[in-house]
Amino acid sequence: MQNPTFEIKAMRASYGAKEVLKGIDINILSNSVTAIIGPSGCGKSTFIRSLNRINDLIPNFHASGDILYRGEDIYSGDVDVVDLRRRIGMVFQKPNPFPKSIYDNIAYVLRVHGFDMREMIDEIVEKSLRKAALWDEVKDNLKQNALTLSGGQQQRLCIARTLAIEPEVLLFDEPCSALDPISTAKVEELIHQLKQNYTIVIVTHNMQQAARVSDHSAFFLMGELIEFGKTQDIFTKPVDARTEAYITGRFG
């Protein structure tokens, strides 16, 4: 078995006095898709948002335990959060393009990381848009404001933006919850292709989606990890009764 990308032991997380993750142990494997499933409020979003420390933006948030990314504790004092977030890209629930042109959405993240050569930026913009399967739709309108794109296009732009700086991991936090079925299919197809080069973690409340795109699944319930294994196993022969109850739709 390959080395895990994330090794997580006894992870706890809380907002003020409210604890939302109560001791999570999980290994996330490289170059595979791991789906995090569970009912609303189970802590799956908090979990994924802790992996790139984007939750640091929320006042009163606190995480503890061992959260090792490639052997390095990402919550230790000397971690460069900015660099961490470059290596671990994230796509959010609601598409959040910057209120700028399509081109500038991608160019911005490149400039932020020190790219300043025009030709190079042009090249990466095209490459990332191609990877995100958006190039053909927008190549003639790169100067157009990104907010005028459809929801599905916006989300693919956000994926392109994330790919532009060549991260090692991609985190998807319910990337399709705001999209129509056709856009959802496109994004799922994209995730499937990206798997070859990236380690992917995806939070979803959609069982079929988890079954379609992931290799491994983790079932969260009320801040605890109930079951983790190959997606196929989780969906066909869950060990825990609660997992079974959830995937067969008896609660949610």
Binding site: N52, L57, V82, R85, F92, F98
Partner: peptide, 13 residues
């Protein structure tokens, strides 16, 4: 807030 989130998530300071 989502704009700040997007920017920080892409590794901006």
């Amino acid at each position: 807030f989502s704009i700040r989130e997007a920017s920080y998530a892409s590794g901006a300071t």
